[in-house]
């Protein structure tokens, strides 16, 4: 949605609010599609359905970039939220980066086509779900930062909880992989994918830590 020519103060604010909501919706949606894509890959490999999910995540990522740039330009052009502008833009950029990780992971599945043995499927799915829930909690924390700063702490707490969960699952999964009879190169290849998926949760936690600081600054 392009920015209309001239808007009054409140019209402009409402417009940017909608843009930010749309951006966060995109991050949340990309996580759910990534989750579905991993399940599809595990059951069908890089099928057309998987590629459709990849295209959808890519579309959301491109859209996220566009919205972020528009919001950035609007905030600076009209000197909106001067005291918190830098924090808001950093938050959007960091959250956009999570979108990028989902997209990159999908591409890695298509390019590298890891052969994941069935015995690890459950853990891969569980890891992906936990990571996506972690990112989703971060999205909720970001929404709360804009509307209800009292709730940021609660959501941030969930981000940290799910990140720890994801770490535990990835450690368990990597231990199982390296304890299996698979050749070393396959073990290393699988470990790489476990770590890439887990990276989203780690990145979400980093963003949550920064968000906690922004929240302190935002409080009166």
């Amino acid at each position: 949605m392009a920015m209309p020519g001239r808007l009054n103060l409140f019209g402009r604010s409402r417009h940017i609010e909608r843009e930010i909501e749309e951006f966060l919706d995109g991050v949340s949606e990309a996580g759910l599609i990534f989750q579905r894509a991993v399940r599809t890959y595990l059951s069908e490999g890089p099928s057309q359905d998987f590629r459709d999910d990849l295209d959808e995540v890519s579309r959301l990522e491109t859209r996220g970039d566009q919205i972020r740039r528009r919001v950035e330009a609007e905030l600076y052009e009209h000197t909106l939220i001067p005291d918190l502008r830098a924090d808001v833009l950093r938050l959007l950029e960091d959250t956009d980066w999570l979108l990028g990780i989902f997209q990159a992971n999908c591409y890695h599945f298509v390019i590298e086509r890891p052969d994941i043995p069935k015995e690890f499927h459950r853990d891969f799915i569980e890891l992906t779900e936990t990571v996506v829930t972690c990112v989703d909690s971060l999205v909720m924390a970001a929404r709360a930062f804009f509307r209800n700063i009292g709730a940021v702490r609660d959501h941030n707490h969930k981000v940290i909880f799910y990140e720890t969960e994801a770490d535990m699952i990835s450690t368990r999964l990597k231990t199982a992989i390296f304890g299996s009879d698979l050749p070393l190169e396959r073990k290393i290849h699988l470990r790489y994918f476990v770590e890439r998926i887990d990276d989203s949760a780690n990145a979400a936690e980093d963003v949550a830590d920064e968000l906690a600081i922004y929240t302190i600054k935002r409080s009166l």
Binding site: L9, F10, R12, S13, R14, I16, E17, I20, L80, I81, L84, V88, F145, F146, R147, N148, G150, R218, S219, L220
Partner: peptide
């Protein structure tokens, strides 16, 4: 400031709207 903080806690005003 105290009154304002209490008021803002009871209202969920978006950061951008609050800025306006």
């Amino acid at each position: 400031l105290h009154l304002l903080a209490v008021f803002l806690k009871t209202r969920s005003i978006h950061l951008l709207r609050l800025d306006a």
